[in-house]
Computed example of a mutant assay.
Amino acid sequence: MACVALLAVLLLPACQAGAEATAAPTPDAAPLATARPVPAAVISTDPPLGARDVAPVTPLVVKAGNGDLTAVTVTAADGTPLPGTTSPDNRSWTASEPLAYGTSYAVQASARNVEGTPVEVSGSVGTVTPRTLAMPSVFPDEDTPVVGVGQPITVTFDEDVTDRAAVERALRVTTTPPVVGAWSWVGDRAVHYRPRDYWPARTHVVVDVDTYGVPMGDGVSGQADRHVEFDIGAKKVGVVDADELQLRLYVDDQLVKTMPTSLGKASSPTPSGTYVVMSQHRDYTMRSATYGVPADSPDGYETPVRYASRLSNSGIFVHGAPWSVGDQGRRNVSHGCLNVSVANAGWFYENFGRGDVVEVAGAGPRLQTWDGFGDWNTTWDQWLAGSALPQPAA
């Protein structure tokens, strides 16, 4: 037994040495990772610096990549600063006003990356210089807060428009409640908007003409925007038939008054069709010269009247005509106007107004669309055909 024990003792160091030889080495520390460089901040602009003939409605934007903006200054050539706002994350700056035509803007911007290393850029952006500018006017306007159910919206420019589609895309009508309507061009300078049917009574209408900066063709660009709001009043419609010669007046489809009237005589018949009251005058002088007949000619005249409500550009009015009271309701003796008594003309003047409707049937040739607000004298399909943009089927 002593010999076996001695042998075990002699072999033990050798076993321990073997165990130590096969154990995995333990490193003192892991190798250090190679550090990546922090990317530099990058500044860009839209439109890019150096751009020329930029549309002034193009929003000028300055952006920072790999960092934050620290300062942005944009200045017109005359030293006027262009205001702008910086996003909450300091990654972009956007001009808060449109650019001006024919102007060079100096842009200076600085940014820093996450380590605070700064970077700066500078340059300029130039806007287009049109051949001329077109100013829009809108009716109804601020002076006509309430109009009748027949009132079209008119936008008129003081220059010819050749790119009608571009202009039409810049026009917007918003109504409460929603109403189906469309724009239709009535010449090179005017575009009208009307609903498919008369406006619903008491509709609120908002018109936005966003034509500033819009190229209109042939070197013409929009000079300004317009924003107009108005309301449609009660539904007021007058109806007269040339065979009956009674002007019946309806408010919200209820008959409220009947007036004997005299329309245009055979040599100057009143056009048949739908008229819209354009303007009103307590005192007005009717002049034949306005439609080419001199006052001193056999058929000429220059006659003062009371309570004249204009229905057309060609000189059709509802007005007081005391000289024809005996003919009113019996025969047509006027030069085209709707003659009524002074008292009845006064009632019409006080109770009907701009945008209200007068429908004449059985009289002369059809009232032309261009004659006043004759927009209702075309079918809806014809109206849609006057748009420069594709329209949904009627």
Results as ranks from 00 to 15, higher is better:
residue 1 M to W: 13
residue 4 V to Q: 11
residue 9 V to G: 08
residue 10 L to A: 15
residue 12 L to F: 15
residue 17 A to Y: 04
residue 21 A to Y: 11
residue 22 T to N: 03
residue 23 A to G: 05
residue 24 A to W: 12
residue 26 T to L: 15
residue 27 P to D: 02
residue 29 A to D: 10
residue 42 V to H: 00
residue 43 I to W: 00
residue 47 P to T: 04
residue 54 V to H: 00
residue 60 L to F: 14
residue 61 V to I: 14
residue 69 L to C: 08
residue 71 A to M: 11
residue 73 T to A: 13
residue 79 G to D: 14
residue 83 P to Q: 03
residue 83 P to Y: 02
residue 84 G to D: 11
residue 94 T to M: 07
residue 96 S to E: 11
residue 97 E to M: 12
residue 106 A to S: 13
residue 109 A to S: 06
residue 109 A to C: 10
residue 120 E to F: 12
residue 123 G to N: 01
residue 128 V to I: 15
residue 134 A to E: 10
residue 134 A to G: 11
residue 137 S to I: 15
residue 140 P to R: 00
residue 144 T to Y: 00
residue 154 T to M: 14
residue 154 T to L: 14
residue 155 V to C: 02
residue 157 F to T: 02
residue 157 F to L: 12
residue 159 E to Q: 15
residue 166 A to T: 11
residue 166 A to Q: 07
residue 166 A to R: 05
residue 170 A to Q: 07
residue 173 V to H: 04
residue 180 V to E: 15
residue 180 V to N: 10
residue 184 S to M: 09
residue 184 S to G: 14
residue 188 D to S: 15
residue 188 D to M: 13
residue 190 A to K: 12
residue 192 H to N: 11
residue 193 Y to M: 08
residue 194 R to G: 04
residue 195 P to Y: 01
residue 198 Y to C: 04
residue 206 V to G: 03
residue 210 D to I: 10
residue 212 Y to K: 06
residue 214 V to W: 01
residue 214 V to Y: 01
residue 216 M to W: 05
residue 217 G to Q: 08
residue 218 D to H: 06
residue 221 S to R: 04
residue 221 S to D: 13
residue 223 Q to T: 04
residue 225 D to W: 02
residue 232 I to T: 04
residue 234 A to W: 04
residue 257 K to C: 10
residue 262 S to W: 06
residue 264 G to L: 03
residue 267 S to K: 07
residue 268 S to G: 09
residue 272 S to M: 10
residue 273 G to K: 00
residue 275 Y to E: 07
residue 279 S to V: 08
residue 280 Q to K: 13
residue 280 Q to D: 09
residue 281 H to W: 09
residue 286 M to N: 01
residue 290 T to P: 00
residue 296 D to P: 04
residue 297 S to Q: 09
residue 300 G to R: 00
residue 300 G to Y: 00
residue 303 T to Y: 01
residue 305 V to K: 05
residue 307 Y to F: 15
residue 307 Y to N: 12
residue 309 S to C: 02
residue 309 S to T: 13
residue 310 R to G: 07
residue 313 N to R: 06
residue 320 G to K: 06
residue 326 G to R: 01
residue 329 G to P: 08
residue 344 N to G: 13
residue 347 W to M: 09
residue 349 Y to F: 14
residue 350 E to Y: 09
residue 350 E to M: 07
residue 353 G to F: 02
residue 353 G to C: 04
residue 363 A to V: 12
residue 364 G to K: 08
residue 378 T to W: 07
residue 388 A to K: 07
residue 390 P to G: 03
residue 392 P to I: 05
